[in-house]
Design a protein around this nucleic acid. Structure first.
Lengths: 233, 233
DNA sequence: TACATTAATATGTAGCTACATATTAATGTC
DNA sequence: GACATTAATATGTAGCTACATATTAATGTA
């Protein structure tokens, strides 16, 4: 099968995927080494490597040095969520964005936030409660904790003008981001802020970020009733 | 700065990211070409290319042939969701998985499903309503439509034994997957199936997949009250 | 047998070259 | 000036080589 044309890594990837899906190689099976595949397809090992890296990333196979490549027993669907700055999300829908700082205070982190970070002890943090509005209607309410040890500059930012969301995204890179999504019924205090009714189903996004091992921020964002989160089209 | 050591693409990526984040290059700015960076860092263009590809994928920069590389004006948070086969999700939590086929019928696709696929006309489809249980308690209810033109074999699969979820994931690759997440209040018919109370907040995942341009399946999965979706740790 | 050392092996990465491709800029023609 | 043609340019990809790294298998030694 070793022809003398140029093979794209996409084509090689699709061929290998096809073989996995038509059970030439079943779940748990070990695949031939990259070199073997390269010889079979008549392409370079680097091309097979590219293909394999993609298959590994998409969750179909698992690779280990020396161990070789195995077809995963438990295929997963991997989807990439795009979570833009809230202001841009609102503006992209053609709405007018407004932002409202509700409360701001220095507090030691409570146990729930420490748990999000995986920290044993409380740390000094800045708590910021704020509301994002679209066309003057509540859009997302966020209750955010920012680690003052990792981001001391935040103390001198005027958070009534610029949202902590935007300032952090623009000024603080993160190396790790944990995300948790769920639904919860609206409570009385929600209805005040989000103009929701008690009993409305609210979409909640909890997000925690680190730079290296240092905690940056952990927040709970509650969206207005009817909010939907998409994968990028 | 052109030294004669080996530079990892991760190090190069971090250097460039650092420059972007400390405003050496601001949002909307054009970055030097890859070759220029390679000369500066004393590494090969391919190494810079790898670094840049990663930065582009993570949403920090945007690349266009001939156009060059630009720092994105609107940084986004990208998170990868792992959506395993429901059976495995349940078993991984240490629970006993059970599956129950509720209804199954051939029907032309209704307008809502056609809209998900972006199709102008109805197609013959198999509708499957099924319940996934964990420890005999309702876990996820799915209402699924499968395109019979793309997946004719599904008609001869015994869906009372194996879930359509599992059969499709194991037998049908997809090249595109759209995902939509939201919360909605539980209705009367939910409470029957999910043992939820009317007014409970339910987490809903709508998923639509294609192979090439051919529609495969579109489903609406409603989780039991309290369900949470995570990014992989 | 138990444990440390060494060899073998498959994937991972870096560097180079050559060519492909998309897009913009320059040029020519009417 | 309007439009088609051509050149220039930056990224994208394929192929090759060489070496790095992780992990398993084989071997040696007390």
């Amino acid at each position: 099968m070793a022809e003398k044309q140029r093979h794209s890594w996409v084509a090689i990837r699709d061929s290998i995927r096809e073989m996995i899906l038509n059970s030439t190689y079943g779940p748990g099976d070990k695949l031939p080494r990259d070199e073997e595949f390269a010889a079979r397809f008549g392409c370079a090992r680097s091309t097979v490597h590219r293909a394999m890296r993609d298959l590994a990333q998409s969750g179909l196979v698992e690779r280990r040095r020396k161990g070789g490549t195995m077809v995963r027993r438990d295929p997963v669907t991997r989807a990439t969520l795009n979570i833009p700055i809230t202001r841009l999300e609102v503006e992209q829908k053609g709405s007018v964005y407004r932002y409202q700082l509700i409360r701001q205070s220095m507090q030691p982190s409570p146990p729930a936030i420490m748990a999000n970070f995986g920290l044993p002890e409380a740390r000094p943090m800045l708590r910021v409660e704020a509301l994002h509005l679209a066309d003057s209607r509540p859009y997302i309410f966020e209750d955010r904790w920012i680690c003052l040890e990792t981001v001391p500059e935040i103390a001198s930012v005027d958070l009534s003008r610029e949202s902590a969301n935007e300032w952090l995204v623009r000024n603080r890179p993160y190396s790790r981001c944990d995300l948790r999504l769920y639904a919860r019924p609206g409570t009385g205090s929600d209805s005040e802020i989000l103009q929701s009714k008690v009993g409305d189903a609210l979409f909640v996004m909890e997000r925690t970020t680190w730079i290296g091992d240092a905690p940056i921020t952990s927040l709970c964002a509650v969206a207005h009733p009817g909010y939907q989160l998409f994968t990028q089209g």
